[in-house]
Amino acid sequence: MQSCRFFLLAFVIFNCLTASAQLQKTVPVTDSLYDAARRRPIPLLIYGAGQTDKLRPAIISHGYGGGYGAYAFIAEYLVANGYYVISIQHDLPGDTAMPTAGKPYEVRMPFWKRGAESILFVINDLKEKQPGLDYKNMLLIGHSNGGDMSMLFAREHPQLVANVISLDNRRMPFPRASRPRILSLRSSDQPADSGVIPGATELARYRMQVVKLPATRHNDMWDGATDAQKMEMLGYIRTFLHLKD
C-alpha cells in the first residue's frame, strides 16, 4: 500500500527528526463557538498566535470518546512549520452515544455529518476572524471517527480542502477524487471496512498515499504514543506536506 520512494524518503526524515531537538511546547488558547442554527456549542483549542497572515489553517478532529487536547504533538509540529491549528471538541456532554450495532456506515453517518457541520462552521467563522490565512492550503486531520468525519467533509466540500490526513479512519470511504490530496496512516491492529480504502489502481490514479505502521496500534495515534511512534508519524506528515523545517 505504500510506494517505495515515499517510504524511503519518510524513513530518512524520521531519522532526522529523531536526532533533532524536541519541539517547543505551545500553550493553546481555549475558545468556544456557538452554532445557533443547531443550538450547539463548539469548544476549540487554538494553537498559534500573533501574526497569522499567510499561515496555513489546519483543523484536527479527535477519535470517538477522546478529547481535543490529545493531539498536541501534531499541532505543535504544524505550528512550528507555518500552520494555524484549531482542534475541535466534537463529543459533548449529553450527546447520544454512537451506536455499536448495525452497519457502521449507516448508523454512524449522522455523527459524521454533525462533525462535518461543526468543521464547516469553524472554517466559516475562521474566515471572518482571520482573513489573512492561506485558505487555499486548508488541512484536515482526523483520528478514527474524527478521520471518518474529515473524509465526509472532504467528499462534500472538496473546494474547501487541499489536504486530508487520516489517522486510521475505518468506516467512511475515501473520496475518489484528486482533490483533496490524502495521506492515511494505518494501524497494525485495526483493519478498515471493505471499500473504505481504494484499491491500487485508484490509489495511483488519485495519488493517494496509504502507509501501514507495523509498530503502531489504532489507540497509539495520539499524545500517548511513544516518542518513536510520534516521530514516525511526523516523518510521514512532513513528507506529505512537503515541509522543510
Rank of each mutant, 00 (worst) to 15 (best):
Gln2Thr: 15
Val12Asn: 06
Val12Glu: 10
Ile13Ala: 04
Ile13Met: 01
Cys16Gln: 14
Leu17Pro: 07
Leu23Cys: 09
Val27Trp: 00
Pro28Asn: 07
Val29Gln: 14
Val29Trp: 07
Val29Leu: 13
Thr30Met: 09
Ala37Glu: 15
Arg39Gly: 15
Ile42Met: 00
Ile42Tyr: 01
Leu45Gln: 13
Ala49Met: 03
Gly50Gln: 06
Gly50Asp: 12
Gly50Glu: 06
Gln51Arg: 13
Asp53Gly: 05
Pro57Val: 03
Ser61Arg: 08
His62Lys: 02
Gly66Leu: 12
Gly66Tyr: 13
Gly67Pro: 01
Tyr68Leu: 15
Ala72Leu: 01
Glu76Met: 08
Val79Trp: 06
Val79Lys: 03
Asn81Tyr: 06
Asn81Gln: 07
Ile88Ala: 04
Gln89Met: 08
Ala97Lys: 11
Phe111Met: 10
Leu120Ala: 12
Ile123Met: 12
Lys127Pro: 02
Lys129Phe: 03
Lys129Pro: 02
Gly132Thr: 02
Asp134Gln: 00
Tyr135Asp: 06
Met138Asn: 05
Gly142His: 07
Ser144Cys: 04
Gly146Thr: 07
Asp148Gln: 05
Leu152Glu: 07
His157Tyr: 13
His157Phe: 12
Leu160Ala: 11
Asn163Lys: 15
Ile165His: 10
Leu167Gln: 07
Arg176Phe: 11
Arg179Ser: 15
Arg179Lys: 15
Pro180Glu: 10
Ile182Phe: 07
Arg186Trp: 09
Ser188Phe: 00
Ala192Phe: 03
Thr201Cys: 07
Glu202Pro: 01
Met208Ile: 04
Gln209Cys: 08
Gln209Tyr: 04
Val210Asn: 04
Arg217Cys: 05
Arg217Thr: 09
Arg217Ile: 02
His218Thr: 10
Asn219Trp: 10
Trp222Pro: 07
Ala228Met: 11
Ala228Gly: 09
Ala228His: 10
Ala228Phe: 13
Lys230Leu: 11
Glu232Asp: 08
Leu234Lys: 06
Ile237Lys: 07
Thr239Lys: 12
Phe240Gly: 03
